[in-house]
Design a protein around this nucleic acid. Structure first.
Length: 459
RNA sequence: GGGAGCGUAGCUCAGUUGGCAGAGCACCACGCUGUGGCCGUGGCGGUCGCGGGUUCAAGUCCCGUCGCUCCUCCCA
């Protein structure tokens, strides 16, 4: 019986995992630089965490969330995002009682029931940060600076390597868009920060009513989906890509015109900090995010090189979520990004980058006695820090040498002749230099003896 | 959710109006009996995604289904 993977769930094979490991390492390093500590929360939560926290009417919860009963009938969800879980953990473990800003980051699998396509799986991976406990506009700016810094260290653009022709990333250059033919850059990575403020809990009903009033008067020009949104979630209309809806959205009331004095000042302060940081940002009055918990600042970091699906990560403030989930009133800000999208961009960038042999040494045994001796030798070498492997496929000497040539920097040949003399032959596989060494001494101090076949210049 | 294209060897793909299932790469053996990269010869490898239907005959035509990809949508 052949069982295949579930739709939208894919394997990441050893060929690809080094890329993911690099991604994860860069992300962890960047987060650590900004003072964030890792939190690991469960993949499974009670349904109501997301239906209440993220919002019943959001697309993510309403249409895309995996929901199932456990054996006792408890309704559970595979997490569609992590912010709600992190906040639950923050409240559950009383982190607010420590009276300090909690800076938490996570990295891991999320689940959304979507139609799979390149860079979008049903099990996908997100990284993100949550800074819980401060309303300081400088913290909003710091989150954006962190996002920007992370992309800078990942998206080092090499003009000699063309972005892979994947459709998603081969959109035609738009008018006014810069091309990549003006040499290496150290500061401009084609990044653009889109920014808006959607106000606090008090501002929202006022703005929502203003939007409803505006769109209701022109309901005939809205797409069917947006006619529904008019009642359930009028903010989402601003996000619609239908030309008719977009035209209306351009003239629609702006959330920034419905901010209370505190929110208006906060947004001004955030922008002032961004100016001070020198981050290129663009005010986008139609930017609203898909999840209900956002308040005040919302942002997306986009790449000018990615065409229509250009958002690398998104985030903002969620000053009401901690209280909503049973904690004290606590402001917070964070962002999340998709790993798959980064993996595609990175693999395009370093596709030609050849990695060296994975092993230090490959043992080529000839005959049964040598294989027995080899078993002992391998175990000892590994305990001395030499990465080493041997043939378990019964290959001929020639084939074993072939395998050695592509998987290791050195070969060690052990046969009847060598055993009789108490020796083993070491060979530098890039220079071809070869010499016999005494077996017990080599086993005791392999690093030194491997260097004795390094005299010839390697190409 | 709506629309389109594609599923043939481990991988990349040919396969004509329906008429014996193919190539390159990879793998294995040999040339070269104990020395890799190059070259040559041979070999292994297939429920043609799956299930029905039409037909003397289906990889090819029809219906269904699963999967992937693209557009749209949503977003990360």
């Amino acid at each position: 019986m052949k069982v295949e993977s579930v739709r939208g769930m894919r394997d990441i094979l050893p060929e690809e995992t080094p890329l993911w490991q690099k991604l994860e390492a860069e992300i962890r390093a960047a987060f650590a630089l900004y003072g964030y500590g890792e939190i690991r929360v469960p993949l499974v939560e009670r349904v109501e965490l997301f239906s209440r926290g993220v919002g019943e009417e959001t697309e993510v919860v309403d249409k895309q969330m995996y929901v199932f009963p456990d054996r006792k009938g408890l309704q559970l969800s595979l997490r569609p995002e992590a912010t709600a879980s992190v906040v639950r953990a923050y409240v559950e473990h009383g982190l607010h009682a420590k009276g300090d800003l909690a800076k938490l980051y996570y990295l891991g699998a999320m689940f959304r029931y979507e139609k799979p396509q390149l860079g979008r799986q049903r099990q996908f991976h997100q990284y993100g940060v949550e800074a819980i406990g401060s309303l300081d506009p400088a913290l909003d700016a710091e989150a954006m600076d962190l996002a920007w810094h992370l992309m800078e260290r990942l998206l080092v653009r090499d003009p000699s390597s063309e972005v892979r022709d994947s459709g998603l990333f081969s959109q035609p250059t738009l008018p006014g868009q810069r091309t990549t033919d003006n040499g290496p850059r150290t500061t401009d990575h084609g990044l653009l920060l889109r920014l808006n403020s959607i106000g606090c809990r008090e501002d929202r009903p006022v703005y929502r009513a203003a939007l409803q009033g505006y769109f209701a008067a022109q309901v005939g020009d809205l797409c069917p989906e947006c006619r529904r949104r008019l009642e359930t979630n009028p903010l989402r209309i601003l996000d619609c890509k239908e030309e008719g809806c977009r035209a209306l959205s351009r003239e629609a009331p702006r959330s920034v015109d419905h901010l209370c004095p505190e929110c208006g000042q906060h947004f001004a302060d955030v922008q002032a900090h961004l100016e001070a940081l020198g981050l290129a940002h663009e005010f986008d009055p139609t930017l609203v995010r898909g999840l209900d918990y956002y308040t005040r600042t919302v942002f997306e970091l986009c790449s000018r090189d990615l065409g229509a699906q250009d958002a690398l990560l998104g985030g903002g403030r969620y000053d009401g979520l901690v209280e909503l989930l049973g904690g004290p009133p606590t402001p917070a800000v964070g962002f999340a990004g998709g790993m798959e999208r980064l993996a595609i961009v990175l693999s395009a960038q370093q596709g030609a980058e050849a990695s060296g042999p994975a092993l230090d040494l490959y043992l080529v045994p000839i005959g049964d006695e040598a294989r027995r001796e080899g078993t002992k030798l391998l175990s000892g070498l590994r305990r001395r820090g030499i990465s080493v492997d041997t043939d378990y496929m019964g290959r001929s000497l020639r084939k074993a040498m072939q395998v050695a040539g592509r998987s290791a920097r050195y070969a060690a040949i052990l046969g009847q002749d060598e055993l009789a003399r108490g020796e083993i032959k070491l060979k530098n596989l890039s220079s071809g230099e070869e010499k016999p060494v005494l077996l017990p001494q080599f086993a005791a101090d392999p690093h030194t003896f491997l260097r004795t076949v390094d005299h010839t210049e390697t190409l």
